[in-house]
Simulated scan of single mutants.
Amino acid sequence: MSHDRIVSPVEQLYANHHGWLQGWLHRRLGHRADAEDLAHDTFIRVLRSEHDARELRQPMAFLATIANGLLINRWRRQAIERAYLEALAARPVAQEPSPEDRCLTIETLLQLDSLLIGLSTKVRHIFFLSQLDGLTYPQIAAQLSLSVAQVQRAMGKAFSVCYASRFE
């Protein structure tokens, strides 16, 4: 009696392209364990996606697109964490936050970053100078060689995105 198991389209996609994807990621990251993690995360996204793996005409391009998005998110997260840790290093040791507070702050910064991603770099920078560094609009204007009105308009854009997200 034969026990032939039917292989799902995603399993077939995995069998055909996992090795290639892992190599592709390893070349970009330079670290095998990170490449393995991101390859795994890529196939998790495939499982959760609405795309039917049987209908993919260019499966490698599809996987590369998902993996590239994960890479960009990873690099963005690392940049935010680095900036936060640099800001912490500049503070007196007595003001050192707990590990839990550090984790919560980084998660909040990541959420803010993804929320504001549609805004220009300048608007995001102005928003962070105001909300994280506590600079006043005139201080931001002086630092960036802008008018106070330009800073106000930028903050209006950023606040409208934040406000709109509360009702989505």
Rank of each mutant, 00 (worst) to 15 (best):
F62C: 06
F62Y: 15
L63D: 08
L63W: 05
A64H: 02
A64L: 09
A64P: 01
T65E: 10
T65I: 04
I66T: 09
I66C: 07
A67I: 03
N68C: 07
N68V: 04
N68T: 15
G69P: 01
G69D: 01
L70G: 14
L70D: 07
I72F: 06
I72P: 01
N73I: 00
N73C: 05
R74Q: 13
R74N: 06
R74G: 01
W75Q: 15
W75K: 12
W75L: 14
W75I: 10
R76N: 13
R76V: 15
R77V: 09
Q78M: 12
Q78I: 11
A79D: 11
A79T: 04
I80L: 15
R82T: 08
R82V: 04
A83L: 06
A83M: 03
Y84V: 07
L85H: 00
L85S: 00
L85K: 02
E86H: 07
E86S: 08
L88Q: 14
A90W: 00
A90F: 02
P92V: 14
V93D: 02
A94Y: 03
Q95K: 10
S98Q: 12
S98L: 13
S98P: 02
S98N: 01
P99M: 12
P99W: 10
P99S: 12
P99Y: 12
P99T: 13
E100L: 13
E100G: 12
D101C: 06
D101W: 07
D101V: 12
R102K: 14
C103Q: 14
L104C: 13
T105P: 05
T105D: 09
I106D: 04
I106K: 08
E107S: 14
E107L: 15
E107V: 12
E107F: 07
L109P: 03
L110I: 14
L112C: 07
D113W: 04
S114P: 00
L115T: 14
L116D: 03
L116V: 09
L116A: 11
L116Q: 10
I117S: 08
G118H: 07
L119D: 03
L119V: 05
T121I: 11
K122G: 04
K122Q: 09
K122P: 00
V123E: 04
V123P: 03
V123N: 09
V123Q: 06
R124L: 03
R124N: 01
R124W: 00
H125V: 02
I126C: 01
I126V: 05
I126Y: 01
I126T: 03
F127E: 08
F128V: 11
F128C: 10
L129T: 00
L129R: 01
Q131K: 14
Q131E: 12
Q131S: 09
L132Y: 10
L132G: 04
L132H: 11
D133C: 05
D133N: 06
D133P: 00
G134Q: 09
G134D: 12
G134L: 06
G134W: 05
L135M: 15
L135A: 07
T136I: 06
Y137A: 13
P138I: 07
P138Q: 06
Q139P: 02
Q139V: 06
I140H: 00
I140R: 01
A141M: 09
A141F: 08
A142P: 02
